[in-house]
Design a binder for these strands. Structure first.
Length: 601
RNA sequence: GGGGGCGUGGUGAAGUCUGGAGUUCACGCCGGCCUGUCAAGCCGGAGGUCGCGGGUUCAAAUCCCGUCGCUCCCGCCA
């Protein structure tokens, strides 16, 4: 039997040229204006909104049904499209030139009173939105974000297909190889006491694909990292992961430029300038105080060590004598009152600085500042010159260890900086990342996974603290969109890198033995990248956090208010998995159950 | 693990600093009127243990302590 036709066209697709045609619509009542003798319904479906005119005397449905229509009822309308009468055209609606006169109206499914209004103008509490996400996504904001997400992924696939990449799915139940972030673990029933891990990335599998001769791989990959949440971090997230054989850094960055260009064109309808500018890690840290600089504005950090080399100002002299540095940013014409300047000082202290020196350039070129009296005329003049300061500019100066100065000024820069001109989306590549992050105490911590190729093996061995690797990031508007690297493809280099990183042969064999074995069979040179899709879409959509572009995200404590996950499970399930919950955890469950019972009365 | 913000009828907000009757505004909901509205309009109505617990006080949405939830940030995220 043929399926029953439930709708013939999208409500939002109707235009003046459709006038005269008969249509079958189905959707939800977004708004109703019941005048008694005539009822106007704004019918919304996935395509948009159109006005339906219901005349009770046409008998499209029983009178009490028509006047009983409520918001978000799911209805079907059989009717004819006609131009709106003179003077009633609604220019705010794409369909505003026409309306549909209902000949038959059927309630497919009534709606209970709503927990919140499907209304763009109200910022409903997000916990409530997540609990009723299926209603939230009827709102334009979520509906548009889901569409943008889909179009972004489609645009990415278009580039990958065009470039000859093979889409390959890698497993999501894998061996745990803890590499920094905590793994999400899944117990095995067949092997009690053993656990799978959910992948933090398909890293080692995609490298196996290169060994396997795939040459060009990509995947829209769900990844998991069991760390704390942020506005741009969820435990579960999605990446465009890709890798190429006989590839080096230039091939990867070139592909990223194609992806960025195509995605922005599809989502924003604009063409970004290529090539994407590049900064080395060292340059980025030096000029912007961060490895993910927001390049929509300049406001670069200026080093003032030379200016204060013989200063009589004890605070600066002391810092310089201890091997610290004095640097500043020209905040431009901030026009702050004393209270605003004091707030910046407090902010700097919250960020870890011992203090913040502010200076305002007066009309005559002199500097107004609490510390001006401690500085010589030549020092003041040198500051103005070094910071390219003009009358009205506010200068912010921090003296401390270099790591502190960078992080504080980098953060202040983001606080006060505003996009210049029509800078909207500004991408950047950060290249030449160090192999190790050097702590203030001189300790070394690997900055990347141990499969990242060093720029020079000799340099890595001889001067590990300054050695760089063939690792690179893609940054957009101050957010890290993703990371990649050229990988190590030869076992002897891999062994050396493990050694430098302090990973013993035994440890390497036990954790990655299966992978190291694979490297022995003619592994091609290869390189790749992973783009955080959630972050990219959230920025393209001007959203403040990635939850807004995820259909069913979790809250900051890892819970889903809709389904109640994570939840406790039956004892029988635990027994089957060979999992024994400690008594102190059980006690906690009991006290939480009591608390919940109390909360519910 | 730590720091900040928020929690008030179904929704959003004001009230909290400076204690004095659950007060106010908008939307929604229920009933009535209404044939050109489009955030329809007009009339009437219902609806709240001010997240929860404890304390101070003659008196607590308001002050104090604790706790839960949401959120932003630090740590963490090779």
């Amino acid at each position: 039997m043929a399926s029953e036709l439930m709708k013939s066209t999208g409500a939002g697709d109707l235009r003046a040229s459709d006038a005269g045609s008969t249509v079958l619509l189905a959707g939800w009542i977004a708004r109703r204006r019941d005048h008694g003798g005539v009822i106007f319904l704004d019918l919304r479906d996935a395509s948009g909104i159109v006005q339906v005119v219901v005349n009770p005397e046409d008998d499209p449905a029983p009178e009490d049904t028509l006047h009983g229509l409520r918001l978000e009822y799911c209805v079907q309308v059989d009717g004819s499209v006609r131009p709106r009468p003179e003077g009633t055209v609604n220019d705010d609606l794409p369909t505003g030139a026409v309306e549909v006169v209902a000949s038959t109206l059927t309630v497919l499914s009534p709606s209970a009173p709503l927990p919140f209004q499907i209304d763009e103008r109200i910022d409903v509490d997000e916990a409530k939105r997540l609990q009723y996400r299926y209603l939230d996504m009827r709102r334009t904001r979520m509906a548009e974000n889901l569409k943008a997400r889909s179009r972004t992924i489609r645009a990415m696939r278009e580039v990958m297909d065009r470039e000859g990449f093979l889409e390959v799915e890698t497993p999501t139940l894998i061996a745990s190889t803890p590499e920094g972030a905590r793994d999400m673990l899944v117990p095995s029933r067949l092997r009690k006491g053993s656990f799978y891990a959910l992948p933090q990335s398909p890293q080692l599998f995609k490298q196996l694909l290169m060994v396997g001769g795939v040459e060009r791989y990509y995947q829209v990959a769900r990844c998991y990292r069991d760390e704390d949440f942020r506005a741009d971090r969820q435990v579960e997230f999605t990446q465009l992961d890709f890798e190429g054989s006989f590839w080096g850094q230039e091939d990867v960055l070139g592909t990223l430029e194609k992806i960025a260009h195509h995605v922005v064109k599809e989502i924003r309808g604009i063409e970004i300038a290529l090539p994407i500018p590049r900064l080395t890690y060292a340059e980025a840290m030096d000029r912007y105080g961060t490895d993910k600089p927001d390049l929509r504005f300049a406001m670069e950090l200026v080093t003032l060590d030379d200016v204060f080399i013989d200063t009589g100002f004890k605070a600066f002299a002391g810092v310089l004598a201890d091997g610290g540095t004095v640097r500043g940013i020209n905040g431009g014409p901030l026009g702050l009152a004393r209270s605003g300047l004091d707030a910046l000082v407090t902010r700097a202290q919250d960020l870890g600085a011992k203090g913040l020196v502010w200076m305002v350039v007066e009309d005559d070129g002199s500097l107004r500042s609490p510390v001006a009296k401690f500085l010589s005329d030549s020092e003041l003049a040198a500051i103005v010159s070094a910071m390219d300061a003009s009358p009205g500019d506010t200068l912010l100066i921090v003296a401390d260890r270099v790591t502190t100065v960078r992080s504080v000024l980098g953060a202040l820069r983001l606080d006060i900086g505003r996009p210049e001109g029509n800078a909207d989306l500004v991408f950047a590549f950060i290249v030449d990342f160090p192999v190790f992050d050097v702590g203030d105490d001189g300790s070394l911590a690997p900055a990347h996974h141990p499969f990242t190729a060093p720029a020079s093996l000799d340099a890595l061995v001889e001067t590990p603290t300054t050695a760089v690797s063939k690792a690179y990031d893609l940054v957009l508007n101050g957010a890290e969109l993703g990371s990649g690297s050229v990988r190590i493809h030869d076992p002897s280099t891999q062994a050396k890198v493990f050694e430098v990183m302090g990973i013993s042969d035994e440890e390497a064999q036990s954790r990655f033995g299966w992978f190291l074995e694979a490297l022995r069979y003619g592994t091609p040179p290869h390189a790749g990248f992973a783009i955080g899709i959630d972050r990219m879409v959230s920025i393209l959509q001007d959203e403040p956090n990635i939850r807004e572009v995820m259909p069913f995200p979790k809250t900051q404590t890892g819970a889903d208010p809709l389904t109640g996950s994570p939840g406790r499970v039956e004892e029988t399930q635990l027994v089957e998995l060979g999992i024994d919950i400690r008594q102190e955890v059980r006690d906690e469950w009991i006290s939480m159950a009591i608390q919940e019972a109390v909360d519910e009365g």
